[in-house]
């Protein structure tokens, strides 16, 4: 029978968790409450004037067609990044799971993009897509194809989705490769003997085994695309052309730290927080049930 750990000193456990509690309070709860407070005010940049405006900041957000557009953009962007990211990395992970020469090298190389900071990844893709000196518009020009994200909202959205996906690819691949190691070889062989096609083997054996990893990655990618893609947008399109690639987190930054409309920015971060809570709840409550961990 395992011995139950009991602290002799009743204050020691509190002392041990204290650093974590302090950090959470200072870096999470305090800013969150501060945002909550500020979202009901209008303030000048230097914080000398504070005017209570009630729900006005929220009201303005939800009645603004521009904000609606930003929400739609965010949905397209996040789903795009998550689906493309998962599909691509699963395909690559399956390839990297074959028994081929130089496997170690391939696997390592595939992880490299993750070492690149998102803003840098953004800059790399911006260089490739730059209307004037980008490799992609330049190589397509002789065929009469013009690729200019500045004049095309669709190209701009694709560009930021690709950049954000690429930056996260290494992370996804690492988890999928790890997941693939868990697929029992004997089961695959047995299925093979029974005459199952490779697609059938993947769909009926490999994919179910991967479902916890896939679920985990879906959560991580959605969170990533919603909250951590600021750098990509900032270095690639800055939300343009028009508002085509303006997403929630970038707008909250711009309104707060460039335009100094701190009240609205605080209201927007609360909206983001609500989305994060909702998302986590929905995922664990409804999707996780269908995931087999066995």
């Amino acid at each position: 029978m395992p011995e139950r750990g009991v602290f002799r000193n009743r204050w020691l456990p509190y002392l041990l968790v204290l650093p974590q509690v302090v950090i959470t309070a200072v870096f999470f709860f305090w800013p969150a409450f501060r945002s909550l407070y500020l979202s009901f005010y209008r303030t000048d940049p230097f914080g000398l004037r504070l005017i209570y405006v009630g729900w006005r900041n929220f009201q303005q957000l939800f009645t603004s067609p521009q904000y609606h557009k930003v929400i739609v953009n965010t949905v397209i962007f996040s789903i795009g990044v998550t689906l493309l990211g998962l599909a691509l990395s699963l395909a690559i992970a399956v390839l990297a799971n074959q028994k081929i020469k130089g496997l170690g090298f391939y696997r390592t190389a595939l992880l490299w993009p993750y070492g690149v900071a998102p803003p840098v990844a953004g800059i790399i893709w911006m260089f490739l897509f730059h209307p004037t000196y980008g490799l992609i518009p330049y190589s397509l020009a002789p065929y009469g194809i013009t690729v200019n994200w500045l004049n095309s909202p669709t190209v701009a959205m694709l560009l930021v989705i690709i950049s954000a996906t690429w930056a996260q690819l290494g992370y996804n691949i690492a988890f999928f490769i790890a997941g693939l190691q868990l697929v029992p070889e004997s089961l695959l062989e047995a299925a093979s003997v029974d005459g199952a096609s490779s697609f059938r083997r993947f769909w009926s054996i490999t994919f179910p085994v991967l479902s916890p990893v896939t679920f985990f990655l879906a959560v991580m990618n959605l969170t990533y695309s919603l909250f951590e893609t600021f750098g990509v947008i900032h270095s690639v399109t800055r939300g343009g052309p028009g508002d085509a690639t303006q997403i929630l987190v970038y707008k909250a930054y711009q309104d707060g730290f460039v335009a100094f409309n701190l009240g609205s920015s605080a209201a927007q971060s609360l909206v983001l927080m609500a989305i994060a809570i909702l998302l986590t709840f929905v995922q664990f409550r409804f999707i996780e049930r269908r995931v087999s961990y066995e």
């Binding site: 004049n151 095309s152 909202p153 939300g239 343009g240 052309p241 028009g242 508002d243 085509a244 335009a259």
Partner: peptide, 13 residues
């Protein structure tokens, strides 16, 4: 400026 430039982009597109 952001608003103006964003609308110019919509116009040129």
């Amino acid at each position: 400026r952001d608003i103006i430039e964003s609308q110019l982009e919509n116009i040129f597109a």
